[in-house]
Design a protein around this nucleic acid. Structure first.
Length: 421
RNA sequence: GGUGGGGUACCGAAGCGGCCAAACGGAGCAGACUGUAAAUCUGCCGGCGAAUGCCUACGGAGGUUCGAAUCCUCCCCCCACCA
């Protein structure tokens, strides 16, 4: 049932930033093998944002590895901790979420993780199960085991403190709660990004003080986002979402700076070690080829190889040949009383511009095309009919203008990324 | 509780009675260039069918003034030091 410890270690180590401490991991694996008892491997995710991205996927794939090795994976949804918000790496206090928001995010999480994890082998728990019932007395006992000074050692807190930014008391509780998850689950191993190190280590401390064997912390490198600077995060809009359409996945990946290639091939491609180093080796001489392979590989990883190839073709069409994409979202607008629609309103109401003022600016700058023709006159009107609208290089829309009074229907009025990122 | 320093647009940060829709930097957007990107250069970067116009906006509410982001009063919030 269980592979030899060395083999397991090899697979676990692959792509991992740090294992603390590795010797304990080997011991746990050894014992589990002898006793034929799977290890409990946990990772928590706060349902603060409804989308998981390929940055999260780095560690979720590692969880998958543990599943394949026969261990028991517990995916903790931090529905209770999300009330507080993880201060890790945060420069500001986070707003508290309402239970309703958490509830709806939680549902989408379940779907998304099973794109990677084996549903039959995954236990999903919500930490409200054990956290919500704690009494103040329990909390006092818990908090008495750690000191303010040690909390303040954390970089994020220390920086905020130095910057004269607020730190709420409840944020001190966050790591305690996450650590308590490990106690409640009697976790053997906890996975997390390197920014989670403090929280995971606190889990060890708390477990020990509760008379448990401390968990091993498996820290995974953080994937930087498409901007090449900050860690991938939905709030920076520099992410590739697990549920994104193939064209968007492909496009977003293509938009990463070359300097990020090695990192992404390493962490996000899912290719074998040999293949990875092969492509990384080529990154300097032919970054474009590597990036195209990477974009297709990532897309294929979540949508299948056919979709990956299609996304590549669609990308070439729009970006290399500057052509119109094959599939366009359609936006139906109705003309005004005079039977036509002013271009400013077309852009604003279709979501291509945020306001008529922005629409004017875009036109002034030559950033708007109708059926491939640059719109010169900011006062022009559009007659009823069907057009291809283009804003900038890569936002397209099929525009249908109907006679006055008809129903309007635009799919992405807010801020649609039509072609790709 | 006391004393002092703060709260300005997406973020950081200037302004401290009219020349302020608010310098500057970053982010973002558009154009040029390109390998898609980055870098670079140019322009834009509150809203209104555009306008030496109106509306909204410098933590909140009032007030002084012909005129307030700027002065006054009260309130809210953040930070530091001392308790």
């Amino acid at each position: 049932m269980f592979l030899p410890v060395d083999e397991q270690l090899g697979r676990i180590r692959d792509g991992v930033a740090e294992i603390v401490p590795e010797s304990e991991l080997a011991a746990k694996l050894e014992r589990s093998r002898v006793e034929r008892k799977p290890l409990i491997v946990k990772q928590g995710f706060d349902p603060t944002r409804p989308d998981l991205h390929i940055g999260h996927a780095v560690s979720i794939h590692k969880l998958r590895t543990f599943q394949e090795l026969g261990h028991r994976v517990v995916f903790v949804i931090g529905d209770f901790t999300a009330l507080v918000g993880d201060p890790s790496g945060q420069s500001d206090a986070r707003p508290m979420l309402t239970t309703a928001e958490i509830e709806s995010n939680l549902q989408t999480y379940r779907e998304q993780v099973f794109r990677i994890l084996d549903p039959g082998l995954t236990e999903i728990r919500q930490n409200s199960e054990w956290l919500a019932g704690l009494r103040l007395e329990d909390i006092l006992r818990l908090t008495s085991q750690y000191t303010v000074a040690r909390m303040l050692e954390r970089d994020d807190f220390a920086d905020r403190y130095a910057d004269e930014k607020p730190i709420s008391l409840v944020e001190f509780l966050y790591p305690m709660m996450q650590a308590y998850d490990s106690v409640a689950l009697e976790a053997d191993i906890e996975l997390g990004g390197t920014d989670q190190k403090f929280n995971l280590l606190l889990g060890r401390t708390l477990q020990e003080r509760s008379g448990q064997e401390p968990q091993v912390c498996v820290l995974l490198p953080l994937l930087r986002g498409t901007d090449g600077e900050r860690k991938m995060s939905k709030s920076y809009d520099n992410y590739v979402g697990l549920t994104m359409e193939p064209t968007d996945m492909f496009g977003r990946t293509m938009s990463i700076p070359d300097s990020l290639l090695a990192e992404w091939v390493q962490l996000a491609s899912g290719a074998s070690g040999v293949e990875r180093s092969e492509w990384i080796g080529k990154a300097d001489e032919d970054p474009l080829a590597v990036k195209r392979w990477l974009a297709e590989t990532i897309t294929a990883r979540y949508h299948g190889s056919e979709a990956g190839a299609e996304a590549r073709v669609a990308f070439d069409r729009v970006h290399r040949r500057r052509d119109v994409p094959e599939e366009l979202e359609t936006c139906v607008l109705s003309a005004g009383d005079e039977g036509t629609l002013w271009i400013g309103h077309v852009l604003a109401r279709s979501g291509l511009a945020r306001s008529t003022s922005e629409a004017r600016r875009l036109i002034d700058q030559g950033g708007v095309k109708i059926d491939g023709e640059v719109v010169q006159d900011p006062e022009c009107h559009v007659s009823p009919g069907s057009y291809v609208m283009q804003r900038g290089k890569r936002r397209f829309l099929r525009l249908v203008v109907e006679a006055a009074g008809g129903p309007e229907n635009c799919p992405s009025t807010t801020d649609g990324d039509t072609g790709s990122g």
